[in-house]
Nucleic acid binder design. Structure first.
Lengths: 326, 326
DNA sequence: ATAATAAATTAAAGCGCTTTAACTTTTGGA
DNA sequence: TCCAAAAGTTAAAGCGCTTTAATTTATTAT
């Protein structure tokens, strides 16, 4: 069953049917209704491949992510999907873990544009997109030069987190950073240092972990062993923070009574663990929406200049931080 | 640039080019090489939409999932992607959270088949697939009648978990179950009951949580408050187990010394939390591969009968369970 | 009422590929 | 060497839609 059958049934030409499918305004209301009725009666759906071939448009946007195991990513993806719907687009997710670039499948006839949601190692993907002349946007990405991307101000996030601890009276504050290869790690650390420098404080320590529970656990355990525990810790993400809390409580220490802890990302468990974790939340909804909006702008005006958008994170104070006992 | 340009450059006909693209065997090696060279020289990629339109095949398989925040799902998705590659297919992920069926986008011209990886509420999706005559496979799904699906034997998982606790000498064992709407919840509970019944033990308690940390925390806290803590707990998933451990340690109790805990799913944190969580691991790789294989069979032989495949979970003993102190 | 303009509709071409059927070349057995 | 069968190649049609340009119908100004 095809567009011709619909035209026949509605008593109009094929082109008129195409017009109403594509929302053209030059169709008499009477005919539009006839077509709509015929489509419904025949349970007709336009052939996607044929439309793409004829029009050169797919109405789908590709989204590449590196993994599927993160509340933050999930929030962004859902926001993108929602926003895309408003624009009449459909989302196609493509999972490309680091090192599996061969699974990157987007071509012009598959997608009209691509959103890259990989915090690292995206260079090859971008190269492919440029070569294929597919419009794209980078989200949360490290390599920001010359590219259109939306970022969250991690410096500010690190700064706010640290400032929160300082405001609570802490003077002996440590940072468990993420891997240096991530821009976000470097920036959060920078924010940490900036906040301390402002009040002429020296960091208790800055150690690099790897965004996993175990590094938080090990580092804190070592501090305990060496009897040089800080009074407050800013962890580069919630997983590290969870590991840190786990270590403290296993050594008979209390959070936040003995040590205050603050994380980053507001993972799902952050609000469910006891004590609930104070953290820095990235505006997932805004990130996704802004990404879509930028891409849509690019699609409608190819001359659009490359731009960087920075969004602001938000400090969420819960129960893992408290004023220093003097 | 199109297939004709390639043909011209290679000095053969368009059809010959098409033949080598599609791996036909009836092309002289000399010509095949000429075509391949021309394709490379022109940096040519066949137009996907045109191929789909002409052949009626997409070489893409759709995968619908409900959320993106789960180690188990991630494992299955990756396995599917890998296996699909062997068959020359490409994966398109479609996120359809419960209640957003309007985001379900698969049509015949987009995918050759669909894998449904939603543990619940899939009826409407299946209806659509049947109506559109798109081959599909259900994974880990509750409504198993008449459908082709791959399931993991949750009864056995529940049984093994409970048996492990019994073997360790525990007699006072509780179960924190998942919501009854999930088949997996019901089956894990059934396995729990079966293991106890076998040795003529009565469950200490069976309470329904909701697959979240908080329910584990609350239920265990209540048991403590009521001074009727079991010596061992089988939690229907790792999140519940984590909440339970969190509650115990916050009340000054030790895992596994005071209470043994076993979870389900082997989430990422299970091996990172201290104590490391004893759990039941589902064979993510096998699940994904079996799902793909079944779908491929369906694609090559439409007459294929509907079948249910059951895979076996695996008990992973770590440090959150130990022999009962007499 | 009529010409000029605007609105709505149509016929026909074409998007880039695969497939069928017809044709040509190669191979091997007598 | 010749002929039949096998192997390889080609021309032409068509997949289902959109788009352009041409045509018809409706609307407005005179």
């Amino acid at each position: 069953m095809n567009i011709e059958d619909v035209a026949k049934k509605a008593g109009v030409s094929v082109v008129t049917v195409s017009r109403v499918i594509n929302g053209a305004t030059t169709v008499r209301e009477k005919n539009r209704k006839k077509v709509l009725d015929a489509m419904k009666a025949l349970n007709y759906e336009p052939n996607h491949a044929a439309r793409v071939l004829a029009s050169g448009k797919t109405n789908v946007i590709g989204l590449t992510i590196g993994h599927l195991n993160d509340t933050f990513l999930e929030g962004v993806v859902k926001a993108i999907d929602r926003k895309l719907k408003d624009y009449g687009y459909v989302l196609a997710l493509n999972v490309v873990p680091v090192g599996t670039i061969d699974r990157f499948v987007f071509q012009k006839e598959r997608v009209d544009g691509v959103i890259l949601l990989c915090p690292t190692d995206e260079t090859k993907l971008v190269e492919q997109l440029v070569e294929k002349d597919i419009p794209y946007v980078l989200i949360d990405n490290q390599d920001i030069e010359q590219k259109t991307s939306v970022l969250v101000d991690n410096i500010k996030g690190g700064y706010e987190a640290t400032k929160h601890l300082i405001d609570l009276g802490h003077r002996d504050i440590a940072h468990i950073a993420g891997p240096n290869m991530y821009l976000s790690s470097r920036e959060r650390k920078e924010g940490f240092q900036k906040a301390l420098a402002e009040v002429h404080l020296k960091p208790h320590d800055i150690i690099h972990g790897d965004f996993k529970m175990t590094s938080g656990y090990q580092i804190v355990s070592q501090w305990i062993r060496e009897k040089r525990l800080p009074t407050a810790i800013f962890a580069a993400d919630d997983f590290i923070a969870l590991g840190a809390m786990n270590a403290l409580v296993n050594h008979g220490l209390k959070v936040p009574d003995d040590v205050s802890i603050i994380g980053y990302d507001d993972q799902q468990f952050a609000s469910q663990y006891v004590p609930q974790l104070t953290t820095v939340k990235q505006p997932e909804g805004e990130i996704g929406e802004k990404g879509v909006q930028i891409l849509m702008d690019k699609l409608s005006d190819k001359s659009e200049q490359a731009k960087i958008y920075r969004l602001e994170p938000e400090l969420i104070v819960r129960h893992s931080t408290k004023a220093l006992n003097k």
